[in-house]
Amino acid sequence: MSAHEHHAGALPPEPEKATLEGRNKILGFWLFLGAETVLFGTLFSAYLAFRNSVLDGPKPEELFQLPMTFIMTVVLLVSSLTSVFAVQAMHRHKTGQMLGWMAVTIALGAVFLGLEIYEFNEYAHEGHRFTTSAFSSAFYTLVGFHGGHVAFGILWIGLVILQILKKGLTVVTAPKVYVSAIYWHFIDVVWVFIFTVVYLMGKV
């Protein structure tokens, strides 16, 4: 089944799954997320192994500021919700609403990213640099990988928004919306474990 069998105006209810290409894309992306799970798991295990190797640098309980982390968590959580709303709008074929929610999502993502950069900058001033200790290397690698994923997500969803503006919502563009939303949720789920394992457990 090819993309050409569907024409604008006759969009099926779940346009992302209307074509074989779309279904392939979603499945392949899920498998990729399986790989990403292992990737982040390995980073978590390195972090856990080195959580006490702080040497002269600041200890996690001295370093982390709960209010900051809480704000970042709420921002990312809300962005995940708005991303769901975007997919729901897509299922109702409300292109305008969908674009709006996507824009909100990346705006919140940018706020999150800005806060993270600010946070890293603060830590560096407190003597917690990338090369300070095994703990600091593992911390920046884990949290930095997550931040890199957020940045990539912002670029990606931004690109999808531009494409929808140009091409409209079709069976070709719909899977892109859906897959980028899945990606965004995944980043949020990873953050749930980062704020739990890194920040909160570091303060306990």
Partner: peptide, 27 residues
């Protein structure tokens, strides 16, 4: 992906001075 992370850690150690495998810095 596990290899990817291992290689990233090794690369960060070698190129950016990280301490994953540096025993003296707690690695």
């Amino acid at each position: 992906p596990a290899l990817t992370v291992g290689l990233v850690a090794m690369m960060f150690d070698r190129i950016f001075g990280a301490n994953f495998f540096n025993v003296d810095a707690g690695g």
